[in-house]
């Protein structure tokens, strides 16, 4: 616990995180590199159906695709180290800039989803636990079950129908204004918020049975204090663990949800790139998502250690 040991511990945690980042990103990109090579000859695709064998050979030499696979892999890694994923053959823009330009839109709906999970999911979960037998709590729990069970493309179509077509309250496609982010966010958030409600409820119902809650009551603390100040932090670790895993899931769900609402984030960009065989964009997207996922799990570790002193000690080992 002494301050003198804190600095090296933070440094060590930082070093561990860096190693994890490099290993994960390297693994994902290596896999992607070989899978893309297995999926067919990019030169033939680029030249198109009408091209002659000479054209294909020329493109192949230009792109270095005639070199041995290991040489290509080495070049690829060297490029990645410089964050150079090549240029999109369709727009002529460097792939990484194209992806980073779209990233804020995706982060907007994923971030809003996580915020809803905490600001709406946690209070509803507390309500569901505090008044477990009350009708309002039952309604919350039932609603959470339904939201959790509904696939996001079905929910997305439903929301589109009701709020864009019938009521006309919200735009049905595009990403020009924050208003355009509302329906994609709701579609994305339904599962996450529902899961958080259920996790908080289950965690609280378990925590409330613990001896230390009785101690709080013995000290004269009311039910609300016992629930919010003592049970809730103890119910938090599973919620945090879920949100970390779910962040990765949310990033991949944007592929569907952004497509549905023609929302111009990296999910829609990725789908478009795959259909156009735009490998630089695909690789840059995968790289950015891998970095994000590792970063989120690192943030999760830090938050977990902040909440639970026992985790801090384990980490110090």
């Amino acid at each position: 616990m002494s301050a003198g040991r804190t600095a090296p511990r933070v440094l060590r945690a930082g070093a561990v995180w860096l190693v994890r980042l490099v290993v994960t990103v390297l693994g994902v990109l290596t896999l992607l590199f070989f899978l893309l090579r297995l999926s067919g000859d990019p030169a033939a695709v680029l030249v198109g159906p009408g091209g002659s064998q000479e054209d294909i050979d020329r493109v192949r030499t230009e792109l270095g695709l005639d070199l041995p696979l290991w040489t290509q892999y080495g070049t690829f890694l060297g490029d990645v180290a410089r964050l150079d994923f090549g240029v999109s053959p369709h727009t002529g823009e460097p792939a990484i800039s194209a992806v980073l330009a779209r990233l804020p839109l995706t982060l907007q709906i994923v971030g809003a989803t996580l915020a809803l999970a905490v600001l709406v999911g946690v209070p509803l979960g507390m309500l569901a636990a505090a008044r477990a037998r009350h009708a309002s709590a039952r309604a919350v729990t039932a609603a959470a079950s339904i939201a959790q069970a509904m696939p996001n493309f079905v929910l997305g179509l439903l929301l589109l129908l009701v709020f864009a077509l019938w009521l006309g309250w919200l735009p049905s496609y595009g990403a020009e204004s924050p208003l355009h982010a509302v329906l994609p966010t709701l579609t994305l958030a339904a599962f996450t918020v529902a899961r958080v409600v259920r996790l908080v409820r289950a965690g609280l119902l378990e925590a409330i049975e613990q001896d230390f809650i009785r101690t709080v009551r013995a000290k004269g603390g009311g039910r609300l204090r016992a629930l919010a100040r003592h049970a809730l932090p103890n119910a938090f670790p599973p919620v945090l663990a879920f949100l970390v895993v779910d962040s990765a899931y949310l990033l991949s769900s944007t592929v569907i949800v952004e497509q549905l609402y023609a929302y111009d984030g990296i999910g829609k960009q990725l789908v478009d790139a795959i259909f156009q065989r735009d490998y630089p964009i695909v690789q840059a997207t995968v790289f950015v998502v891998a970095v994000l996922v590792v970063a989120v799990s690192a943030i999760g570790d830090v938050l977990g250690a902040l909440v639970d002193p026992r985790v801090r000690r384990e980490a110090a080992g």
Partner: peptide, 12 residues
Amino acid sequence: FQDPATSLNPLM
């Protein structure tokens, strides 16, 4: 209480 291992809040 009987069991001091569980009668204190571990996070406080």
